[in-house]
């Protein structure tokens, strides 16, 4: 483990970028970054071939620190940039990291459409139940009744379950893990990257500074321990009742389906269009007629 940590530090962190990073001590973002880098390392990818895109938020700062092709886009729109990058250069491995607000509030439409479209890309959503960067307002995953800077009397709305949302929207691969389960998280990310098609990795994380503090959930350690206690493997969860699953975090692979990938399908479009254009050009030549459209 130590050895691998050293490889990750040497190989994958940007040394021309002045650390320290912007994250609070104990923030789960660092654990996710570590797991992601180890997963990339184990996947045997070349750094030149990896793109890491992000939106805006604490999570959005991750690309700055790592030595890939990196882009910090606009709030909620990361997947739209990734879509353009992937379509322009399908040979690149495109990973997108987002916060819960980023991916499912302002970027909710892009998120479900990316899942539906099924490009071969991976989205990693760090779900810390709040808007960390802007000071702890409620997000689409803030639990009912929770306190935030914009719900001081307790939240009156209900939360999204991101992984389930991704399954319904049609993602090829969906998994969930937490920042407590660092090795499991790494394994899941590796599977998500390896999967051909749109993969979604939801990571339950702690924002003890904004969310934990206001809801008496303790500091980073207590919150992360809480994830351990609440986590249930998918296989076990399948045998549990809805009541038993209240407040539990189901971890593992939630969906893994095979379906045509749109980049590959588009290659078929290109081949057919080229064939047709050639045929028209030949006819034109034969008939000596100049026509704009056939």
């Amino acid at each position: 483990m130590l050895e691998r940590a050293e490889i990750v530090r040497k190989e994958y962190l940007r040394h021309d970028k002045k650390f320290p990073h912007v994250w609070c001590p104990g923030c789960g973002n660092g654990i996710v970054m570590g797991a992601l880098l180890r997963a990339i390392h184990r996947s045997g990818l070349e750094k030149d071939d990896v793109v890491l895109a992000s939106g805006i938020g604490c999570s959005g700062r991750m690309p700055t620190y790592v030595d890939f092709n990196t882009i910090h886009t606009t709030h909620g729109r990361a997947l739209t940039f990734s879509t353009g990058i992937k379509l322009a250069k399908p040979e690149l491995t495109v990973l997108t990291v987002m916060g819960d607000g980023d991916a499912t509030a302002i970027g909710g439409n892009h998120f479900i459409h990316a899942a539906r479209r099924n490009l071969d890309m991976t989205a990693i959503i760090i779900n810390n139940s709040t808007y960390g960067m802007t000071g702890g307002q409620y997000s689409p995953t803030t639990p009912f009744g929770s306190k935030s800077t914009t719900s001081v009397y307790g939240h009156v709305e209900h939360a999204f379950s991101i992984a389930e949302l991704a399954v319904t929207a049609g993602a090829s691969f969906v998994a969930r893990s937490t920042v407590y389960h660092a090795t499991h998280l790494e394994d899941m990310i590796r599977l998500a990257i390896a999967k051909k098609g749109f993969s979604v990795m939801e990571v339950i994380s702690n924002c003890h500074v904004q969310h934990g503090r206001r809801n008496k959930l303790g500091g980073a350690v207590e919150m992360i321990k809480g994830f351990k206690e609440r986590a249930v493997r998918v296989e076990k969860a399948e045998k549990m009742s809805a009541e038993e699953l209240v407040d539990k975090i189901t971890i593992g692979v939630l969906a893994d389906v095979e379906k045509p990938i749109s980049t590959e399908q588009y290659q078929r479009v290109i081949n057919e269009a080229k064939k047709k254009a050639e045929k028209i050009a030949k006819e034109k030549e034969k008939n000596g007629i100049k026509r704009y459209e056939e």
């Binding site: 895109a53 882009i71 997947l79 739209t80 940039f81 990734s82 879509t83 322009a88």
Partner: peptide, 13 residues
Amino acid sequence: IASMGAVLGASLA
């Protein structure tokens, strides 16, 4: 919004 994002992404690639 997405169209503009994709255009920028493709150009960056």
